[in-house]
Design a protein around this nucleic acid. Structure first.
Length: 148
DNA sequence: GCCAACGTTGGC
DNA sequence: GCCAACGTTGGC
């Protein structure tokens, strides 16, 4: 799952211990979130920054939560078409599990995962949530090593 | 700032 | 249901 560190980074999550992954306004990304189950793990990816990289690991605490920002007129994620009776957007709560001692940079991902494998990543590179295959996730984990 | 690679929208 | 036009994202 990706976030811009300026907006919300791994430091913020470490401090908060857990967070609502709200503000997702992309149907595909929302649907991926809907398919998540409690105890699922997710990589935290820093996007749109100096060193885009996987920096940490999270765990799904709660699923199918209503995204409160859709009703908040002061939020940039306010959605006029949504109502409490018929909410359009939901989110999950994620727990901080740790940050990796060594990050896995986008550059390194590109260097090592080409052709078909990279396409799996590319397929979702515009989403707030990037789906990757189980096999790639395992390989990423091996490359990332230990949490600190 | 550019632009490729998407996703969304709306007319038909 | 198609697809042209448009908007957004994110790496560079």
């Amino acid at each position: 799952m990706k976030s811009e560190p300026d907006a919300y980074g791994i430091d913020d999550l470490q401090q908060e211990k857990s967070t609502l992954w709200d503000g997702i306004r992309n149907y595909q990304a929302r649907n991926f979130m809907r398919s998540m189950k409690i105890k699922d793990k997710a990589f935290f990816y820093h996007s749109n920054c100096k060193q885009p990289a996987i920096v940490g690991l999270m765990e799904v605490m709660e699923t199918h939560l209503t995204d409160p920002t859709q009703f908040d007129k002061n939020s940039k994620y306010f959605d006029q078409k949504s109502s409490p009776e018929n909410p359009k957007w939901d989110c999950v709560r994620l727990k901080y599990l740790g940050r990796y001692k060594k990050v896995l940079s986008l550059q390194e991902i590109k260097e090592n995962y080409q052709s078909q494998k990279l396409q799996l990543i590319r397929k979702g590179n515009r989403l707030s949530i990037m789906p990757i295959s189980v096999q790639i996730a395992i390989e990423f984990k091996e490359r990332l090593g230990e949490l600190s």
